[in-house]
């Protein structure tokens, strides 16, 4: 009896503490979630009430709208090529910084700084860096006699350009790796050293397995943010002075969220955009689930 009472009291205390989240969840998550699910079956321009059209919006997305598939393809490209590359580079940086080196604080700051620069500012900077005629990259290439590509104005190079720009901003995942690396007990390395394990062996046999939960974390977070990639392409890919909407050249940088935003706030197709949002949500759930499922095979948890 007393125990039950305590249980109730604990429940009340617990709920009281998390009540801000509950209210926020109901108002800013659950309601919008349900509403957007409803809107996704309607035609809705905000000014007039939504009109039910059933699955038409979804059908159009999947079977009629070529831009939808282009945006999926572009986003997948970033996921398949951009994300692993940035995870590798950030891991490399973290491993280097975790060594016994001088000027550690300096290097750590240098590698981390780009990731805290406002996305708008770094978009402007890279727009200028990628300028085919006077930009930093092509100037350097020209100095060694290479004629650089058009980068953001060349459909073959526009996505690689975004990947390069992304590599500059890997500081966030680097810091997380760094924290993970510092959690690996020193004794493991000492023991391996005595056994005569090479540096590479230590890396593959100790560092990687011990770091695998961190890798999983970065992988999931990276996937989610890559699927929502918006600010940089939105700012950097409007054909200047032309009628081409964001996503130029030749839709090569039309990423999923850019198309979604365009439909919602440029064409005011809120219902259609809601359907896109729900497809995105499902994609994220599937990706997360797949990563979690696969993690049983490659993520090492202490005490296992």
């Amino acid at each position: 009896m007393l125990q039950l009472k305590k249980k109730h009291r604990d429940l009340a205390t617990g709920l009281a503490f998390i009540s801000p989240w509950i209210i926020g969840f109901l108002a800013f998550v659950l309601y919008p979630l349900v509403a957007s699910f409803y809107y996704s079956f309607t035609q809705f321009n905000i000014l007039r009430p939504p009109r039910w059209i059933g699955l038409e919006g979804y059908a159009e997305l999947l079977f009629e709208d070529p831009l939808f598939w282009i945006s999926i393809k572009n986003t997948l490209y970033m996921l398949v090529f951009g994300l692993p590359l940035s995870l590798i580079v950030s891991l490399l940086l973290a491993v280097l910084l975790n060594q016994d080196i001088r000027f550690k604080a300096f290097f750590r700051t240098l590698f981390y700084l780009p990731s805290i620069i406002p996305a708008v500012a770094s978009a402007m900077l890279w727009l200028w860096i990628f300028n085919p005629q006077y930009g930093l990259i092509n100037s350097v290439l020209a100095a060694v006699g290479i004629r650089g590509p058009g980068w953001l104005v060349d459909p073959r190079w526009s996505k690689p350009a975004f990947i390069i720009m992304g590599l500059w901003g890997v500081g966030g995942s680097m810091v997380i790796y760094l924290a993970g690396l510092q959690g690996i007990p020193e004794q493991l390395y000492e023991a391996a050293e005595i056994d005569g394990a090479s540096w590479m062996q230590q890396f593959t046999k100790i560092t990687l397995p011990m770091l695998s939960p961190t890798i999983l974390f970065n992988l999931i977070m990276g996937t989610i943010s890559m699927l929502q990639y918006f600010t940089a392409p939105y700012i950097m890919t409007r054909g200047v002075g032309t009628n081409v909407p964001p996503g130029s050249p030749l839709n090569s940088t039309l990423f999923y969220s850019v198309l979604l935003f365009q439909n919602a706030f440029a064409y005011f197709k809120m219902g259609y955009a809601s359907a896109m949002a729900w497809i995105l949500f499902v994609l994220i759930m599937i990706a997360t689930l797949v990563l979690f499922r696969s993690s049983a095979r490659w993520v090492y948890y202490e005490g296992q």
Partner: peptide, 25 residues
């Protein structure tokens, strides 16, 4: 409190919810 960890999973799950889904409503 009972149910705490289940609710916490819900909190984590909302991290996966893209802003685009709730943006319009």
């Amino acid at each position: 409190w009972p149910g705490r960890d289940v609710v916490f999973i819900l909190v984590l799950a909302t991290m996966m919810l893209p802003y685009q889904v709730t943006m319009i409503p």
